[in-house]
Design a protein around this nucleic acid. Sequence first.
RNA 1: GCGCCUGUAGCUCAACAGGAUAGAGCAUCUGCCUUCUAAGCAGAGGGUUGCGCGUUCGAGUCGCGCCAGGCGCACCA
Length: 538
Amino acid sequence: MKIDIKKTIEEKIKKNISHFKKDMKFDVLPTEKEEFGDFYTNISFRLSDKENPPQKIAEMIKDKILPDLKGVIKKIEIKNGFINFFIDENVYRKHVLNIFQNGKEYLKEDIGNGKKVLIEFVSANPTGPLTIAHGRQAAFGEALSRILKFSNFKVVNEYYINDAGKQMELLGESLKARYYQLKGKAIEIPQEGYHGEYLVDIAKKIQDIKDDLEFFKEFGYNEILKDIKEDLEKFGVFFNNWVRESDFIKNNDVEKIVKFLKEKGLIYQKDGSWWFKSSIFGDDKDRVVIKSDGSFTYLATDIAYHKYKIERGFDIIINIVGPDHHGYIPRLKAVVKSLGFNLENFVVLIVQLTTLYRGKEKISMSTRKGQFITLKDLIKEIGPDASKFFFLFRKIDSHLDFDIEIAKKQTTENPIFYLQYAYVRLKHVIEFAKEKGYEIEKIEDKTEILKEKEEIELMRKIWVFNDVIEGVVKNYGVHLLAEYLLDISKKFHSYYQKFRIVSENRDLTEARLILTKSLLTIFETSLYLLNISLPEKM
RNA sequence: GCGCCUGUAGCUCAACAGGAUAGAGCAUCUGCCUUCUAAGCAGAGGGUUGCGCGUUCGAGUCGCGCCAGGCGCACCA
């Protein structure tokens, strides 16, 4: 594993300023600009007062810690009160060589320490096909899951199937109506029901009918769930568990937990129904769990479900939801808290909606009328990889504008082609070198030859990979990795244009092949984590 | 009315626990192909970070108040 420069600097500073103050808080962060070196610290601002301006303190600290950082830090400069650290390039060279020799495994870093994480995502009702909103959630959830696993978390992907309650009744009734419409009978779909064309297709498949609602419900459920699973598989998204809401009712789990909460005084009767005291756990008001007709609300089954989540001993529970569920979050947090789970480890991530465009034209979506572009349509039109990349390279909080025309274009307007081109070039260089007789595996350390500014910069970018991963894990910001990949693509394109990798100079070529191969490892690893595959040739 | 998200270059978006001169891509303009893929590269222009006040050494980032857009406020799931 690579050395942690940040931590090293932090430790040396702490050691040398202990006489100042105890528990001093300060940052050691990567810089944005070359002239400021690779890392900087703001400690001088923290320690400064009227007699001792930041500049003066910085000078004092600099002289003390420089000898301690030999071999890691080349020089220290002070500017505007900041202390800037310039990393010894040999640190980069060694790192690149390690990646070259050990591949992907060397990039792994233990952030999770084996902690168990449950990610619940998509969880679309089995009443219709997956939408692009689900697509964004699916792409995000899968990538997050992969990155967490890569960072030594133990991750379970879970899909919660809402197959109980009124929505399923409506599905059954809607399908029944469609079926009889096909037989020439004028039966109306309930107004609240599902009017999408997909139910016609499903109705056509019905052969041996039993004329009760249960049959239509079950038939519709099975067909739609099958369809959802197919879509997700095509999209490259996989779940370890499929949990059915109805099971919690069938197994009396809901009944049991409701009884338990009643006994604890957390569920009480009022106005003919039973209410959960969510307000004492931070919700705005209390919520109904048993309706006046005696049936459970969705919240009731969700309590049972979250109890099931907690019982399985996860350290972190992540729920990925759409913005239409955000009003529900305080309720859910109240549930989790009432079950004794630490809210700090219960994370709800809201993935904002995506607006589709064809050029300037906005594609309006109405799920009610069944006029929407489904995830299936999108995958069919632009492919799973382009779709995923577009979903992933913006942070989830932003409302995403997704132009189908751009995603289809084979020009630089389309970021995924830019990426693809860099990837293909990397591969091609390696192939070309092999044709010229270079045995890549046998190349020995020649990284000291890498001295060009662009080479140092590329090595620095490679070095930063782990920081990016750390950022993703800390902030659940998968887009950071996608951006990183675009950034490193740009650096490589530029380098490739300016310098020849495979040249007459054998040593130089080998040194550059080490760099190229390491870059390829970075690419392959990142693409795997984002769950995107790219063609080998263009 | 209340709550969540968003507002940054002409367009789409970055900016990790508040750090230095706010960055990319597209679009526009100017250059670069006998050598590993020009689907590329180099360079230029483009900004009062929606508005106002505050917190502090320092604010796109934090707080308060406005303005605008999206979404949500069920005994639906």
